[in-house]
Design a protein around this nucleic acid. Structure first.
Lengths: 362, 362
DNA sequence: CTGTTAGCGCATTCAC
DNA sequence: GTGAATGCGCTAACAG
């Protein structure tokens, strides 16, 4: 039995040296008392950044703290210093692998810095996004990271920008991932360029009649990818009539519905580009359900290169994005930057990955 | 005048009635002053639960608050009332769809109650899990929800249980999802029963020689599913020698590696059960890479029924779990329960879903 | 270097 | 009902 007298399963009433069995966590004052120093001194060694405590004391405080299992109350610290150690992370939908991958990166970065992340999933409701930012502002979050495409709505964007500006003015840092319309630091995804490059590759494979499942018309990311794709086709000498657009939700079901619509209307294209992988998956399912083989009957391409979807069959042609890294960079951007600093933008290129869901047209 | 001169795009220096352009969020005191009432009164109408403020005042406070855009400082509230509005959510890996689906449910539930969720991803490191719980405890989180399998390690489990007990004793609520070895409320997944049922179905299809990719030996969830599977086979009259076990990580790559090992050693089974869908996907990829067709050459089954993986081809036979709902229930369990209450446990059954990745043996 | 003191923003007794 | 006073746990001047 390694683990002999494993202290009894129950609590820890501390032998006999504890005069007041105060419930709840130990406070700094108790540590100070136990170490025989002032509250200030204890605070300095335990939390104050600049060390300036003599060795006789320093050790005693540390020991006492360890013994009592002291943990600073972050709320008290937040209120006393006027700044918390909270980082807010606002995503459109945490159950979407695109966002959870990014979240992973953000959390990694925050953990390293001893920051706590408050996560909010807006479920694609811009109003909720606004509300969460307000909440985070009230929390005196140290930084807020907004992930997800902006919309065309000037109003919504302006309101969010204003809220963020207010937050930022009172010392909070902000970073966004997607477009840089918010006047903040941002990790700018080059959707346009990626889609354009993808289109060229597809044209090179011989496709002359294509369709793009464009996602929601108001989502900038969706629009940019669509626009970039059309540009790429033009670059390749194809007329604008060569491409057909079908809008729909940015989800798997949205992709399914859009593809179905395409088939129902009499599929007259050899290749379909869904503006994100999740939609592409839905589209592939729809085509299959209609007896169409991929890529023999129709080629399909997506965007994002979601890890969980890498093992699809046929493997999905897409534009790869370094999701986790984007999250890390956004966090770093917000955290390593001076409060008043001019907005920086880090560009992230997508890399076209040709796989089996697209084939050369005969 | 419904919002006439929409204050200029910039900050809001308030026309001419504001003597001190104090930076940062407005405080309760300012609202009280603006409304011409005491701080206490303002506090009562804005935050105090039991209303007891006369109508002349009540309205004024509300108006002032709205006008100034007042938002209570949650840290100050936390410290004043000794309890925060934070709910801690600890998962093994947020980028794993199993966890992000559950997280979605938890967040939904918390949002409804106006609670904020602090999320932590341990990246499958038990020590980190312990540490996060301690952090959450220090935060005076209102509740902590631990998601993910426990391990066989008595030591680790005991330490976590102890930490949770301490947290719970000081008024925090706790709920777990997976096993109920922590002495807390728990959403208990009936892994054993689900796997057993799956095994029976597979046996019914005629499989007589099977393998299970067991995942990490120390993970209880993995062991339970493995054990249940073996039981189900026994139920069907198969000898224990009928099933072969291959351990490995609980991930896609773990599944790939385990399946490869199986093939390399000379595949002598007709069906492989990976203890979760993500591993199953890896296994399918491995089989394909070795030229094996699914389900013709080998049937594959998983567990969880991850939504993102529902469109795999061939579609994956698995045991479905109501992930989002599990998250919601865990949150409700923790939040709707009295602090001292006896641990409740909500059982969740998995439902076998036979799809195309498994076929009748000829 | 160390102890004293004054807040941080808010909830809450306690008198009025 | 309403206001004044106290305290929550900790940090940050400010003096010794």
């Amino acid at each position: 039995m390694a683990e002999p007298a494993e202290p009894t399963e129950t609590a820890e009433p501390a032998p006999g040296t504890d005069p007041s069995p105060r419930r709840g966590p130990v406070r700094l004052a108790e540590v100070a008392a136990a170490a025989g120093v002032s509250l200030a001194t204890a605070s300095r060694v335990l939390n104050g950044s600049h060390r300036s405590v003599g060795e006789p004391h320093r050790g005693r405080v540390l020991a006492a703290a360890a013994e009592l299992g002291y943990r600073a109350n972050p709320h008290a610290q937040a209120i006393a210093r006027g700044a918390s150690n909270i980082v807010g992370l606002v995503v459109h939908d945490i159950s979407d692998p695109y966002f959870s991958a990014i979240a992973d990166g953000v959390m990694r970065q925050c953990e390293q810095r001893g920051l706590v992340v408050v996560m909010a999933s807006t479920r694609r409701d811009p109003e909720r996004e606004l509300d969460y930012v307000a909440t985070l502002r009230a929390q005196r979050a140290r930084a807020v990271i907004i992930v997800g495409s902006r919309t065309r709505s000037r109003d919504l964007t302006a309101r969010l920008a204003k809220e963020l500006a207010g937050f930022s003015e009172s010392g909070g840092r902000v970073a966004c991932i997607s477009q840089n319309r918010l006047g903040t630091h941002t990790v700018l995804v080059q959707n346009r360029a990626g889609a354009r490059e993808l289109a060229r590759e597809l044209a090179r494979l011989g496709h002359r009649r294509l369709a793009v499942l464009t996602g929601p018309p108001e989502l900038l990311t969706a629009r940019d990818r669509h626009a970039g794709f059309v540009e790429g086709l033009r670059d390749s000498g194809l007329p604008d009539e060569a491409v057909r657009a079908v809008p729909g939700p940015f989800t798997r079901d949205g992709g399914y519905a859009a593809a179905t619509e395409l088939v129902t209307a009499g599929l007259d294209v050899t290749c379909v580009f869904a503006v994100n992988d999740v939609m592409a998956v839905g589209a592939m399912a729809a085509f299959r359900d209609h007896g169409l083989a991929i890529p023999q009957d129709v080629s399909v391409a997506g965007f994002d290169d979601i890890r969980t979807l890498r093992d699809l069959v046929p493997s999905l042609t897409t534009v790869g994005l370094p999701l986790e890294e984007m999250g890390e960079r956004a966090a770093a951007l917000a955290l390593d930057t001076e409060p008043g600093e001019r907005p920086r933008t880090v560009r992230v290129r997508g890399e076209v990955v040709l796989r089996d869901s697209t084939s050369r047209v005969r």
